[in-house]
Design a protein around this nucleic acid. Structure first.
Lengths: 360, 360
DNA sequence: CGATCAATTGTAAACGTATACCCTGCTAGC
DNA sequence: GCTAGCAGGGTATACGTTTACAATTGATCG
């Protein structure tokens, strides 16, 4: 296959591309007959260099296939253009949607996104702190409560205007005065519960999230508040803890189904669990919503294709993602100058068909 | 709250932690009364340093709260310990599962994971290539066909034993001799189709993925092969392209439902689409599997909670993720020395309740 | 034509770490 | 007690950029 030389292929280029050991700015400078400073300027401040020189450098660059070593750049500039987002589970479609918003904004701003899950203990608070401190990332978006995180590294470093923004949930006390963007989880949970009440339900149970999660804590709080306000009792065993997964919800639902005083409606702290709950109720031979009503939270994309379609609270997930990323950017650029007030985005009750008036 | 001084708190530490401008190895060395080389050795080769010295250094480190600047480390060592994975959609639970495998292995090996989606053009092939070339990442896992990617950057660089591993699908010709790990998509699709045939179906349609995706191309190929082998005709309009999303599948399904010669079974190229398909069929007032059978592909976690539960092809998603990551590690460490043969993992037909014998 | 000034380019230092190489001092063997 | 050997620690350089500053060029104006 090695032909002699009868085509007009620019042979030199090919040859250069062949080995190309590790072409640095030096090599380009040599080839263009200028100093490395000029090459650097050509790339970063093209207006500060003569058109003629720019050409020479451009030629040299395309000849060598040079591209700046990002490692060196990051090192020199002290910035990686990487942000980290910490969340409970990438698998949850709600967070996926938030991530889409983040990713879009990140891309627009020239950042890459590093994802870390807390769910399976894939990363401890210490490690996250270490990551921050060691400059691997320019900033962090917290979509998950990280209480243990607060005290150790954070408090010491927070004064150094550490770029952290909290998303999707209230900021915990330890993280006070970090910016945040989220819906009003308490009000939203109240609204969901009130909707069930307005349909005539009185025996309303809840499948909530882990106790450690501030987000689900708020939702449970809203549920309890609504029940209290309506003067409805919450029986022992009606509030059962899931782990925000389908499997967890199924287990929790089984417990509820076997409760002596079975509820007529179940409020799930997220849609993922509502799906598990729905399946489990149907598996028990009951019908939804005829026998039991179910309401979820998040409005993930599967919510409208369940059978029956899920009534739920809708969050503007992508928008949250976008906003949280933009706030992080401002925090990175402006330091503590950027505002740190919480930003509340609107939620919405989406009525589909998993809730009906109770049978009795 | 600012008390005078009546407790035994080590005041110096507190004071040091207070400002901590940017403590570098130099500061630690100064404090420990040793050279920076020794500090470095203490961290990276503790056995090459006296216990006594080690102590002094350790003390200085914890006093200052020093942690090595990863940027500088990466720069110096020429490695970032970050790998990039390129995939069509993080939202797809199948890829989420693969990612879990990747993440687990990455964590075990000390890598962080950078995710890039191709679906929404969030990153062009050029950008990915640039990323690679500029050392931002140590290696890349491709879970998505990147045909346009092949020629430009890759071919030029592939000789430089670029650490790339392909996952979930056959490696395209341009990427030849990169390692890969995936199931045998063609055989699996054949198996799915044959199962429908074995149940007595003759009018079998398929909702496939984008033409650009090698993975879905293979599945379509398997379907066609099985049909041919069984001497069953595929009518015009029975193979309709979805985009691997619920919405796309619903649109595709509507087309199938209106087909003059309506199929009795539908093979969907992934479960996400099968869910959309299922919903659409039921929305049309038909029953599954009584009126129409549906079979999916991937066995995502929602597959067992649909109504009816989805019959599908199961892939060992996490295992694929793990293996692909480990192969990438070997590639990073051993260069081209590491084998580059494709690694086929087993798939499995999971029979649930979305397929039955045809009515007629 | 020479001087002054602006525009452009070159020089060199710095970022924080790792390490090759050298030096010191100790131990052990004779 | 002397030397060979070696382990522990110091010195200094390199990694590839960016950038402050110096130097040079070219141009404009007197």
């Amino acid at each position: 296959m090695k032909q002699a030389s009868n085509d007009a292929v620019p042979r030199q280029e090919a040859a250069e591309a062949e080995d190309m050991p590790d072409v640095s700015i030096k090599e380009v400078a040599r080839l263009a007959g200028v100093s490395i400073a000029t090459v650097s300027r050509c790339i970063n401040n093209p207006e500060k260099v003569t058109a003629k020189t720019r050409r020479k450098v451009q030629d040299a660059i395309s000849q060598t296939g040079y591209s700046p070593n990002k490692l060196a750049q990051s090192f020199r500039r002290g910035r990686t253009n990487i942000v980290m987002v910490v969340l409970p589970s990438v698998g949850d479609p709600f967070f996926t949607a938030v991530m889409n918003g983040i990713r879009g904004a990140a891309r627009a701003k020239g950042y890459s996104v590093l994802i870390e899950e807390t769910q399976l203990n894939t990363m401890t608070a210490d490690e996250i702190g270490a990551m921050l401190v060691s400059n691997q990332t320019d900033g962090i978006i917290l979509l998950a409560s990280m209480s243990p995180f607060g005290n150790e590294v954070l408090s010491a470093k927070s004064k150094r205007r550490l770029p952290i923004v909290v998303g999707c949930e209230n900021v915990s006390p330890e993280l006070a005065n970090f910016p945040s963007v989220h819906i009003d989880n308490i009000s939203a949970a109240k609204e969901a519960t009130n909707y069930l009440i307005s349909q005539g339900h009185q025996r309303i149970a809840m499948v909530c999230g882990q106790a450690s999660s501030l987000l689900t804590k708020d939702r449970e709080f809203g549920y309890r508040a609504a029940m209290k306000q309506a003067e409805l009792a919450i029986e022992d065993g009606w509030v059962v803890e899931g782990d925000l997964t389908i499997a967890g919800a199924r287990k929790a639902t089984r417990i509820l189904m076997n409760h002596g005083n079975r509820p007529t409606a179940i409020f799930c702290a997220n849609d993922e669990m509502a799906i598990g709950c729905l399946h489990e109720v149907k598996s028990a031979g009951l019908q939804v919503p005829r026998d039991i009503s179910i309401i979820g939270f998040d409005d993930i994309r599967y919510a409208e294709v369940t059978d029956p379609p899920l009534t739920t609270i809708s969050q503007p997930a992508e928008e949250i993602g976008e906003r949280v990323m933009y706030r992080l950017c401002r925090r990175i650029e402006a330091g503590n100058g950027a505002s740190s007030s919480p930003e509340i985005v609107p939620h919405k009750l989406v009525i589909r068909q998993s809730v009906a008036k109770p049978a009795s």
